[in-house]
Design a protein around this nucleic acid. Structure first.
Length: 479
RNA sequence: GGCGAGGUAGCAAAGUGGUAAUGCGCUGGUCUGCAAAACCGGUAUCGCGGGUUCGAUUCCCGCCCUCGCCUCCA
């Protein structure tokens, strides 16, 4: 089977995705900061990562997927204190909520989901290492900073020139911290205890305090995936400074390449601008469901454009998702259903999966997860298949292969399909509706068109639509 | 100012040096008493101006516009 190709932010090239150990693809995703409900923009990132993982696994590779929970940082501490709940309880509540949403969106569970607050010893060790190597220094207030000057490759991910950093420093510096830094671009590894942090501090060789945000991902990534691993993922906004800093502190410490491949998804936009609380254009999964849409429809929407392109969220887009998912569900039903993800992965590990007519759609996914092209191919294939099914030109063995091919595509996108239309007719029709429908059919048979049309309008008003056939009719619920 | 993404039909969105997938919508047809549903078909010369080329939407140069990052952020 063809290799997966994926764009790499660091080299800015499309590269073959190959696990370093030739066996298991090890990757790290920056997880949620659990201080409130994740919004659908956050989920775009997690869905993109899930999509990547599914394609990798369906192509026959094993993965080791680590996604952290950020449960100690400025925001979690601030919000927990504001709500009067202990940090641990506060973050546990939002972590649970995140899991519920992730589950509804059919995200595969990461193999390891480390919590930052439970890895403080590892973070302290990393800091000590950096101090010993001369890459970090202690400031007067007991904080520890990473010295950007000490790492000559600083800025390689986002192509930042150190001179530019210094030039821009005067404008972007945080006044409160400025005097403690050799260079304003130095970033904090260990934050000295402050009164506003309440009880949320830990002991360290440099006094009480807490770890800096950038550090946790380096510490946990290296702990679970090794000093060098296959891929690191996150939203584009994390490129700088978060990932740039992760690279600096990790590589300064180990002298090895931190992540071999960088995967960044673009933002989700709403009404043409970035989703944010201040603009009031922020949606959570609950908001979407409250509007009558399903999590799967959201998932379809968020994957219907390239992960590297901004997507403008809209309810028109959600409606389109609904219609298309229904179309896919209908063909899936006619082919005999969808095979489970686990079964498909089992086959993929042993052998390449036969894609049959769906080869072109799958091929598009292997080329930098080209979802748009894959969907384009998919609908073309579906159209052909329907024609064959109608004409009875699809043999049982072809049908079986098609079912498998479609199953791979459906599972790669991770859609949970709705009931096919043909099963929806089984929905219980109320007696009075049945009576009206029967009366209409009679009127129609009697060629009493005005009465027939009147009864049909009446049924529509009740929310039922008549679909006439040659020998009879069906009654279906509108929507 | 620095870095980055993007401008393709009403909307969404791929793609390619040789006259542009796909989905929604719209529209014509078949079917129907008329509809609905279904099926068949139609629907763009690719931001603007130059250049390279036999030929550019696709390559190069300039310009305009949109958006993101540069402070926390998926």
């Amino acid at each position: 089977m063809k290799k997966i190709q994926l764009h790499d932010t660091l080299s800015r090239k499309r590269l073959d995705l190959v696990p370093e150990d030739g066996n298991t693809f090890r990757f790290y995703c920056c997880g949620p900061t659990v201080y409130g409900p994740a919004h659908i923009g956050n989920f775009r990132a997690f869905i993109a990562q899930d999509f990547l993982r599914r394609v990798i696994e369906l192509s026959g590779l094993k993965t080791l997927h680590v996604r952290n929970i950020t449960d100690v940082d400025d925001k979690t501490i601030r919000e927990s204190i504001k709500s009067g709940v202990a940090l641990k309880d506060f973050t546990t509540g939002w972590t649970d909520q995140f899991h519920k949403d992730a589950n509804a969106l059919n995200l595969l569970e990461p193999h390891i989901e480390p919590s930052a607050v439970e890895h403080i010893p590892e973070q302290i060790e990393l800091i000590q290492n950096l101090i010993d190597k001369g890459n970090a220094y202690l400031s007067e207030d007991g904080s520890v900073y990473f010295s950007v000057h000490s790492y000559s490759d600083y800025g390689k991910l986002t192509k930042i020139d150190q001179r530019d950093l210094q030039a821009g420093a005067g404008e972007t510096a945080n006044d409160a911290d400025e005097y403690t830094k050799d260079n304003v671009c130095d970033f904090v590894l260990w934050k000295a205890k402050k009164s506003e942090d309440g009880d949320n501090f830990w002991q360290s060789p440099w006094g009480d305090g807490r770890p800096g945000w950038h550090l946790e991902c380096s510490a946990m990534g290296m702990k679970y995936l090794g000093e060098s691993f296959d891929l690191h993922a996150g939203g584009v906004d994390l490129c700088f400074p978060h990932h740039e800093n992760e690279i600096a502190q990790s590589e300064a410490c180990t002298g090895k390449t931190f992540a071999r491949h960088w995967f960044h998804n673009e933002h989700l936009m709403v009404e043409g601008s970035k989703m944010s609380k201040s603009l009031g254009n922020l949606y959570t999964l609950s908001d979407i469901i409250g509007r009558g849409y399903t999590a799967s429809e959201l998932r379809y929407s968020l994957l219907s454009g390239s992960y590297r392109t901004k997507i403008n969220f809209s309810f028109d887009r959600m409606n389109e998702a609904r219609i298309n998912l229904q179309k896919i569900a209908n063909i899936a039903y006619r082919l005999g259903g969808i095979d489970s993800y686990e079964d498909l992965c089992d086959i993929a590990v042993r052998d390449s999966i036969e894609m049959g007519a769906f080869e072109s759609s799958w091929g598009a996914l292997l080329e930098d997860l080209n979802a748009s092209a894959a969907l384009g191919e998919l609908f073309g294939i579906i159209k052909n298949l329907e024609k064959k099914l109608v004409n009875g030109n699809l043999s049982e063995s072809d049908k079986k292969i098609c079912r498998q091919g479609l199953s791979v595509i459906v599972n790669a996108f991770g859609w949970i399909l709705p009931e096919p239309d043909s099963l929806k007719q089984a929905v219980e029709v109320p007696e009075d509706v049945k009576v009206l429908a029967e009366q209409r059919w009679q009127a129609k048979c009697d060629k009493d068109w005005s009465e027939s049309d009147r009864l049909r309008d009446e049924l529509i008003a009740l929310g039922w639509v008549i679909k006439d056939g040659k020998e009879g009719y069906d009654v279906e619920s509108v929507d």
